[in-house]
Amino acid sequence: MTTQLQNVLVIGGGFSGMATAIQCAKLGLQVDLVEIDEGWRSYGAGISIGGPTLRALRTIGVLDAFFERGYGGDGVNLLTAGGQPLRTLPTPRVAGADVPGGGAIMRPVLADILAKATRAAGVRVRLGSTFSRMEQHDDGVRVSLTDGTQRSYDLVVGADGLYSKVREVVFPDAPKPRYTGQGVWRAVLPRPADIVCATMWMGQKVKVGVNPVSQEEMYLFVTENRPTNEHIDPDHWPRMLADLLAPFDAPLIQSLRAQIGLQSRVNYRPLERMLMAQPWYSGRVVLVGDAVHATTPHMAAGAGIGLEDAIVLAEELARASTVDTALRAFGERRWERCRMVVENSGRLGEIEIAGGDKAEHARIMHETHMSLAQPI
Rank of each mutant, 00 (worst) to 15 (best):
G39P: 02
E224S: 13
P192T: 11
D194G: 05
I60V: 13
I232S: 04
S264K: 03
L262G: 08
L79D: 10
E332L: 04
G203C: 08
G349M: 08
V76E: 07
T295P: 09
E332C: 01
R284P: 00
L307E: 14
R142N: 04
M200H: 13
M202W: 09
L348K: 08
A104R: 07
V208Y: 11
I311W: 08
W185S: 06
A117K: 02
A21H: 07
R337H: 05
P85V: 11
N267E: 04
D147C: 11
A373W: 07
A198N: 14
I60T: 09
Y153A: 03
L220I: 07
T325M: 07
T149D: 06
A250N: 11
R186Q: 01
A291Y: 09
D74T: 13
Y153L: 03
R284Q: 00
A258Q: 11
R142L: 05
S321M: 02
D138G: 01
P270H: 15
L9T: 01
R107P: 02
G17C: 08
P375W: 06
L275A: 08
G128M: 09
A56D: 15
R191C: 03
L114G: 00
L57A: 09
I376E: 13
T325A: 15
K116P: 01
G161Y: 06
G46C: 06
L189I: 14
A300R: 08
P212A: 02
D194W: 10
L241A: 05
A198G: 13
M218C: 02
E316P: 02
W237R: 11
R319Q: 04
Q215S: 10
G346M: 08
Y268F: 15
R226I: 14
E343L: 15
K358H: 01
V312M: 01
G289H: 06
S371I: 05
G304H: 08
E38L: 07
P172E: 02
R257C: 04
K176C: 06
I353S: 02
V292Q: 11
G203Y: 10
G14C: 07
R333D: 00
M18E: 04
T149F: 05
P177N: 12
E343G: 10
H361V: 00
L9R: 01
A300I: 10
L57R: 09
R239W: 09
C197R: 15
G103W: 14
V323L: 00
P90R: 14
G181R: 05
N225V: 15
F330I: 02
K26P: 05
E216A: 12
R151E: 05
V123K: 10
L54E: 13
V210A: 12
V157N: 04
